[in-house]
């Protein structure tokens, strides 16, 4: 069991560094950010209290809502494309019939550790109107990055490319955690491969699916690197994410109050998603 010590102070010394960092670089800033949300502050002169003006501004800021739409779109793609695809990929990677499994795994997992900047720059070239490989293969000069509707495509492609492996790692771990006896029992009952998938695999993967969905959702709501490099948020904000908008207001226009208020909205959104997740977990007893 738990170990008691004669030196009662020791555990506090052990956790002290973590808490100092935590307080100064996470919790403190969070409170700070909350407070600044109610100020008008350009960073040079003293902040001026302006109550709910920032939040009211956000409520009627069409660019903000456009960035929300884009971000939700990125989230939706991640949830409804990346998650199912990665489940299928994990099944394949787990299958004894897959040839060259180690190589395949390396290929699909490597994107996880690749620099977002490097890969976004590469995709920027792949999608280039004039000399990009994509247009070369399609045979038509499509202006991917310059069109308001099409510019979302390259961003989404990078998201799928980068996250597919990550989510399949989780699914793979989940698959490997399933008790083999469950399959054997199903086999004895005469279940086909398909039936076994639906009656054993899917239900057993429910907790992990849930977990993966939350990670993906929360991660995609904070997306920044990919659209920042690929399109800079343009054209006409068509690809700008919420975090990109926060960055624009905060660090190119020096509106710290307004940027913090955007952060506050983002935090509330993410925290409520997380809370809903915890609630659902408890209820379904996952």
């Amino acid at each position: 069991m738990m170990r008691t010590t004669m030196y009662k102070k020791t555990p506090y010394f052990f956790i002290l560094p973590a808490y100092v960092v935590f307080l100064v670089f996470m919790f403190g800033p969070m409170i700070f950010s909350l407070i600044v949300s109610f100020f008008n502050w350009t960073g040079i002169k003293s902040p001026e209290f302006n109550g709910l003006d920032n939040l009211k501004g956000i409520a009627t800021d069409s660019v903000f809502w456009l960035s929300v739409r884009n971000t939700l779109l990125y989230s939706a793609v991640s949830l409804f494309v990346v998650v199912p695809l990665s489940l299928l990929l994990a099944l394949a990677l787990d299958s004894p019939h897959l040839r060259g499994r180690l190589v395949v795994r390396a290929i699909y997992f490597a994107p996880i550790v690749t620099s977002t900047v490097a890969i976004s720059q590469t995709f920027m070239m792949l999608f280039n109107t004039n000399f990009g490989l994509i247009n070369r293969m399609l045979g038509v000069p499509i202006d991917w990055l310059g069109s308001r509707t099409l510019a979302l495509v390259p961003v989404i492609v990078v998201i799928i490319w980068r996250w597919l492996g990550l989510t399949s790692i989780y699914f793979l771990a989940g698959l490997q955690g399933i008790d083999r006896e469950l399959y054997d029992a199903a086999k004895v009952d005469g279940a086909t491969t398909m039936q076994r998938f639906f009656s054993v695999t899917l239900p057993q993967l429910r907790p992990i699916t849930f977990f993966v969905s939350m990670i993906i959702l929360i991660g995609s709501m904070q997306i920044f690197d990919e659209p920042q490099i690929l399109t800079g948020g343009g054209p006409s904000n068509a690809t700008r994410s919420v975090v990109q908008y926060l960055y624009l207001r905060g660090f190119t226009q020096f509106r710290f109050g307004y940027a913090s208020a955007i952060g506050l909205v983002l935090f509330i959104a993410i925290a409520s998603f997380s809370a809903v997740q915890m609630r659902l977990r408890k209820e379904s007893d996952l």
Partner: peptide
């Protein structure tokens, strides 16, 4: 010829 965003500095115009 329409060029948007960073592509102004890119290869579209020279090409």
């Amino acid at each position: 010829q329409v060029v948007l965003g960073n592509e102004f500095w890119g290869s579209t115009i020279p090409t």
